[in-house]
Simulated scan of single mutants.
Amino acid sequence: MSLDVQSKPDYMRDPRKHHFFPYADNGGTSVAIAGDDFVMMASDTRLSRGFNIFSREQGKVFELTPKTMMASSGCWADVLTLNKVLQARLTMYAHEHHDVMSTTAVAQLLSTMLYWRRFFPYYVSNILAGLEEDGKGVVYHYDPVGHMEKLTFSATGASVAQIQPLLDNQIGGLNMQGVTPPKMTKELARQLIHDAFVSAAERDINTGDGIILYTVTKEGKTEEMIKLRRD
């Protein structure tokens, strides 16, 4: 004989499914483009969650060495933790070897750190960009568990679905016949990054407010602030 509703135990009257999800998606988008003698990296300055904007002035690009930078977006707590641990590892290397780690070595170190956390990964999308030993720009794209791909341009974050196809078309010339990709210059890279973020800000509420644009050359590093729409 089946039990009626009144006689069922408490745990059967109100069944619930419990979830454990410690991550938060705080938005943000990053783009990097490399040239023969430079690399340019930019991120938007909006830090949000859903329809709530926490900050309109939060950059997402971190300086690792004088020639290497990392852009991270996703769960902001994981972004800060990953950057803190990576900075500590770089400091330990500098103290032990009395030298600054090269861009290639930093790229491999980041891949190893992400893979080490593969069973409870950092909820972060990363791009690492810098200058190689010969002065040529390079971009490394990562997934959250450490898979690394060496590229000349990449986008990541909330608006990657809008920006990456634009870069593939304008820089890579993908799926186009009779088209030669243009030689990348600083002026062209800046214009493409600006246009990409303007387009993304029109369609994605997680990207907006402004862009912090960094240019790395053998002479040094420059920073530029570009405003976007704030609504």
Rank of each mutant, 00 (worst) to 15 (best):
A34I: 13
G35R: 12
M40F: 10
M41P: 01
D25F: 07
A32F: 10
M40L: 15
V61Q: 02
Q58S: 15
E63W: 02
L47K: 10
A24N: 11
V61A: 08
A24R: 14
S55L: 00
V39M: 10
I33V: 14
V39W: 07
V31W: 06
M41L: 14
G27C: 10
K60S: 08
R56P: 05
T45W: 02
I53C: 14
R49Q: 11
I33L: 10
A42E: 07
A24F: 09
T45M: 07
A42G: 08
R56S: 15
I53S: 05
R46Q: 10
A34N: 12
T29K: 01
F62Q: 12
N26V: 01
A42V: 09
D37V: 04
F54L: 15
V39D: 09
A42M: 06
R56M: 08
S43Y: 00
G28Y: 03
D25N: 12
I33A: 07
V39K: 10
S43L: 01
M40I: 13
T29C: 03
L47A: 12
I33F: 04
G27F: 05
T45Q: 04
A34K: 12
E63I: 07
A32R: 09
A42W: 03
T29L: 02
S30K: 00
A42S: 12
V61M: 08
D44A: 03
N52Q: 05
T29V: 02
F38I: 09
A34E: 11
R46V: 03
A24I: 10
G59I: 08
D36P: 10
I53T: 15
M41A: 06
E57K: 13
E63P: 06
R56Y: 09
S48I: 00
N26H: 15
